[in-house]
């Protein structure tokens, strides 16, 4: 499916959601939850926190569905909401767990879902991100994640973060420099 087709379908699904169609919203969630989780995980560095962020973002989208513009890119909206939620909940500063907004997992489901390889892959990545981005201010981490890891354009980053173009560029440059210096320092210590 091409990008434009996905976009058109998203617009139709958003219109259906505005008419209270739960099935359309299910399709939207299924289509975008992987992207949302990937982005949230890179910010929160925790499986549970990333899932919480995604769920809260989708619930917020449902609550404000009547104000959505179907023509706008759904992924941009999702990135915007997740980044605002991440900043609002103070995860950026403390990396602490949120009050859970979902029902506790059924034990059987929980044991079925978490394969050990997947867990270790995610926790390795989380460790690496935490280690490198330890001293990175939230704004710089956000801009870096959006631009370099999610591969969005500068204009999209500007739209999502609400920072000016010059501000985005400055934050990006600083983030890249700090990450590189941090990686160098870690490598030197391990050698």
């Amino acid at each position: 499916m091409t990008n434009s087709n996905t976009h058109n379908n998203d617009a139709e699904l958003i219109k259906a959601c505005q008419a209270n169609d739960h099935e359309a919203f299910r399709l939207l969630v299924q289509r975008h939850q992987a992207t949302a989780f990937r982005f949230a995980f890179r910010l929160a560095c925790e499986n549970a926190d990333a899932e919480d962020l995604c769920q809260m973002a989708f619930i917020r989208i449902w609550n404000y569905r009547q104000k959505l513009q179907p023509e706008a890119r759904f992924s941009t909206l999702l990135y915007t909401i997740i980044s605002r939620l991440w900043i609002d909940t103070g995860r950026s500063k403390k990396h602490r767990a949120l009050t859970r907004h979902v029902e506790p997992l059924n034990d059987q489901l929980a044991s079925n879902e978490l394969s050990p390889e997947m867990l270790s892959l995610n926790s390795d990545l989380a460790e690496r991100i935490k280690r490198l981005s330890k001293k990175l201010p939230p704004r710089q981490l956000l801009v870096f994640t959006l631009r370099d890891l999610e591969d969005l354009s500068i204009n999209e980053v500007v739209r999502i973060t609400g920072i000016s173009t010059a501000g985005v560029k400055t934050n990006l440059s600083l983030a890249r420099r700090k990450l590189r210096e941090r990686l160098k320092a870690i490598t030197e210590v391990s050698l």
């Binding site: 739960h22 299910r26 969630v29 992987a34 995980f41 769920q55 979902v102 489901l109 370099d148």
Partner: peptide
């Protein structure tokens, strides 16, 4: 940093949200 984190159980997340 660029490795892709995997969502452990997409169906469960969809179910929770809905």
């Amino acid at each position: 940093m660029s490795a892709q984190p995997e969502l452990s159980n997409p169906d469960l997340m969809t179910h929770n949200i809905l």
